[in-house]
Write a protein that binds this DNA or RNA. Structure first.
Lengths: 191, 191
DNA sequence: TCAGAAATAGGACAAATATCCTAGATCAAA
DNA sequence: TTTGATCTAGGATATTTGTCCTATTTCTGA
């Protein structure tokens, strides 16, 4: 069945273009050109632009789950896992400099468009949020685990936003270091 | 001369709509409807959409300078001034929940559009950055004043992004408190 | 091999949009 | 009051975009 492959190609191109150009600013023609497919074929696989967006978000959710699982596999230490998250802004530094955080910028755009898929995009944030919360719970911070998770999320969004604006890798590294020190402080409180 | 007034009205409407709907997603018709003016009249005052964007950013730069001056007038204490900045996310909380940070979201959108006005938008960030830097210098942190300024900026961007996603005022307050405690730590180091 | 289903191509179309153009209205100064 | 500049309205246009439709090609199972 060739269908699944074409669908996958469309999805990949849409994912990439939505990230780089934004959802609204990406046309069917853009995607079709990238996949080297006709608009007609396009509509055979996706009935509307909204449907592609839903599928793209679904794919990102799935990819994110895989990444989180990978981080879990990489280390049993919740602190290490959290550090894996903190370092995303370095690992994906080049893309973030050019296009911002894929989660944050999609969410911001959909909020402005008042688009129905915004909740799905928020679910992407939710994935990181609940995963980070789990790690903090595992570290014994049962009561404020969610607050700490949100703090770490906020860090990554702030760094991504300014990285996209000023394009200064040194700033990103400094903030990552600072965040890691903060995490160390969480682990071994001085009080 | 009625001209200046009409131009001002167009600018106000464009500013508001660009913030709420995004630049790309706001059409001339949208602005014209809001101002109750014809498209023709429109083009008498602005030759292109890009020209309006430039003017909007210019206006925001001017408004921001006024706000910073006001904060300077409100207190001679640099720490108080920095706290004024930190509290923006609460003062403008309602708008940020719905539309995100006007600076950050515009910047993100223009980066994706690869729009020439992106540098102007970054200048908006730059205004806050240099102002915050000045305050930290006044606090005696000459060496790392800019780093600290960027850290405070990153805070506001992170909080704005997540506020826009999750719409939780309690989170915003917690992060503001945390940031103020961090600032206190800067002022009176324990070491 | 062959019929029916699946997949693809590309033209057609209506709506939206940025921009242009021209005619009419308004206003300030002589 | 008249004249010329300024301002405004709205139609015209070319382009883009999302969507639909039909014809053709490719694949699959009997």
């Amino acid at each position: 069945m060739k269908s699944a492959e074409t669908r996958e190609n469309i999805l990949d191109a849409a994912d990439r273009l939505f990230y780089r150009q934004g959802y609204e600013n990406t046309s069917f023609a853009d995607i079709a050109d990238e996949v080297r497919i006709s608009r007609g074929n396009f509509y055979y696989h996706f009935k509307s632009k909204d449907e592609i967006l839903d599928a793209v978000i679904e794919a990102r959710l799935s990819d994110t789950r895989d990444m989180l699982r990978q981080w879990e596999a990489d280390s049993d230490d919740p602190a290490d896992r959290i550090r894996s998250f903190i370092r995303i802004v370095i690992v994906n530094g080049a893309d973030i400099e050019r296009f911002g955080c894929p989660v944050g910028t999609l969410n911001a755009e959909l909020a402005k468009l008042d688009h129905g898929a915004k909740d799905n995009a928020v679910a992407l944030f939710g994935l990181f949020r609940s995963w980070l919360t789990e790690q903090f719970v595992a570290l014994g911070r049962t009561e404020d685990a969610d607050d700490l998770a949100m703090h770490v999320l906020a860090f990554s969004q702030g760094v991504a936003s300014l990285s996209n604006a000023f394009r200064d890798p040194a700033f990103v590294e400094r903030e990552v270091d600072r965040m890691c020190r903060w995490l160390d402080g969480i682990l071994a409180p001085t009080g």
